[in-house]
Design a protein around this nucleic acid. Structure first.
Lengths: 344, 344
DNA sequence: TTGAAAGCGCTAACAC
DNA sequence: GTGTTAGCGCTTTCAA
């Protein structure tokens, strides 16, 4: 295997084309005045030499990197990588590359990310992570340097240029209406304690009940510790064992619903024949058997919006005021729900 | 919001610390001879000024970027992002950052990636993508420039420095033995036509049969077009409708197995009571109900190995010969399989 | 329309 | 131990 000795630079290209580096630069960079023929010569020389542009050098000179950093909590979770895809697809289109990093919710990794973020002179920050103190401080730093920050389904409790959130209230309102119309006015809810998003989801349910002038029975609300399948399993199992026989359960997270499915299986309760199940998130809901009727978040679209907002700011069309955008959630009916004629 | 006017450079730090840029550089870079006290002064000055090192400039000067590119087909698939995580975790430890890109199996995106790869002067390439012509050409280019290339569960049909593959034969051997010992000597297989990995998996089955001196009944081998859940569904459904009543099915891909579960549900066949199901990949197998007994690939570990190999080469401990590493697959017994006393 | 030359922020000889 | 200085490869005045 032969290895190219020396890096080909603009100078080499210019030499071969018989022009100056300035002209070569203008030809390759598509700017300034260059004679058509000259340009053609330069392009040919570059191709002949197998020249690869050095964007490091360009970056040093122009102080631009066309790079956006995206921080997410867990790279193996499709919920976040779908956001990442939305961001990248949009950013690439606009000539930006995006560096994806995850911090596994560990602040030492968050610190490492920001070190890299600043050292590599990234031009914008998008994050989908929950609150932590390092993030808060770093977002402040970032903004102070004039670099825009967008929270995309991330925490609301730090400084940012723009924020994208889910219209959780609207989504759960739809789900509630569906359950009600399907004959399950007394469905159970599994929500997470001390979770602000769970709280907002709950407001969606309350809103519906308010509108129809009924009261929600607090006995049907189950509060669990976190969004894990284990919590869903334990909560459901307890209900089943106590013989409460719910006809429908609404979970505020997909993993919770997966736990409920397992509990139902254990107790020989058939979904959807004996129990209707509704979930939120829609990450693998469609792949399960039965597939789960879900409130679906437009994560890919959210990523695109985030990229759009940040590039808009990077390119200077920045409005002073920060924006908060709430993206609508869809409600998708699948196999895990049925119609209940009895209405109990 | 106040915005920092000017970028703080090494010069500023040196000025404030009352030393030369060289000394400042030595202090911040931890190399060469620097007096302890001097170093302390420089560090303080840097902190005071909120100095952020400019790795673009460093890169230009040293011609090193400490960056590895990782190309995968689909960023929303946890199979690949677990590899990515393995790579990043290892690389970060060694002071490298990794740029993750996906090409959605579209060669124009592959081209874009390599443009970026060369322009940004990345020092190593890892890919998990299947064969395509652009990839082949670009890998050749990359190697010619002296940049190492590692295929991590990617195609074997291009030039590379090192290759990591799965011991598909061994994994399927284990699964076959399990099915046999569980009383299912006549299980059905769903494999994919024209897939080299499916072919190797099949060899694992044949190997077992050879050892016990029996012949595999070809009637039990189902060949489908691709690895989609749809193909799994259709193949299984047809078998069920024909009344063949298999007692066990072994799928060479998780999505195939998901399709089989759906078909079984449709036909009122209970898993595992009436049908045992074994799968390969282990991406969401543990989250399904019932959870699927699976051949599990050590993807995270594979990523770490890939990162290790490439960094070894980048740092010059390169052996001439290219290596091929086959990583063992585990076999995990879950709920989708039972024991068959009848043995038919 | 093209070229000469300065300089982006850093490192690494080399001199002191 | 520390400072001086010449570039790394590119863009961008400015002058021709």
């Amino acid at each position: 295997m032969k290895i190219d000795k020396k890096n080909i630079t603009l100078k080499d290209v210019a030499l071969r084309a018989g022009v100056s580096v300035a002209t070569a630069s203008r030809s390759l960079g598509n700017y300034g005045y260059v004679d058509k023929e000259t340009k053609k010569k330069v392009l040919k020389a570059a191709k002949d030499l197998n020249y690869h542009f050095n964007s490091i050098a360009k970056g040093l000179r122009t102080k631009r990197t066309h790079t956006i950093g995206f921080l997410l909590p867990d790279i193996t979770n499709p919920f976040y990588t779908r956001i990442a895809k939305g961001i990248q697809d949009y950013a690439y289109e606009k000539g930006y590359s995006v560096v994806i990093a995850y911090d596994d919710s560990m602040s030492n990794k968050t610190i490492k990310f920001f070190e890299m973020f600043f050292q590599d002179r990234m031009e914008g920050l998008i994050f989908s992570t929950p609150y932590n103190e390092v993030l808060e401080e770093m977002c402040r730093n970032t903004l102070k340097k004039g670099i825009p920050v967008v929270s995309c389904y991330g925490t609301k409790k730090v400084r940012f240029s723009d924020l994208i959130q889910s219209d959780a209230i609207g989504g759960c309102y739809k789900a509630t209406k569906f359950l009600f119309d399907s004959g399950f006015p007394n469905f159970f809810v599994i929500k997470v304690k001390d979770s602000s998003i769970s709280q907002r989801r709950f407001e969606g349910i309350e809103k519906f009940y308010e509108e129809i002038g009924k009261k929600l029975n607090k006995d049907f609300v189950l509060e669990v510790k976190d969004y894990s399948d284990r919590c869903g399993y334990e909560a459901a199992k307890e209900v089943f064992i106590l013989g409460k026989k719910p006809t429908a359960i609404f979970c505020f997270g997909e993993q919770l619903a997966i736990g409920v499915m397992r509990a139902a299986k254990d107790c020989n309760i058939s979904i959807p024949d004996e129990l209707s199940l509704v979930s939120v998130d829609d990450v693998i809901a469609s792949q399960l058997t039965p597939s789960i009727t879900s409130v679906s978040l437009p994560v890919y679209h959210a990523g695109q919006v985030a990229a759009n907002l940040i590039i808009e700011r990077i390119e200077g069309k920045k409005r002073i005021k920060s924006r908060e955008i709430y993206l609508e959630e869809r409600f998708i009916i699948r196999e895990s729900t049925s119609y209940n004629r009895l209405g109990n």
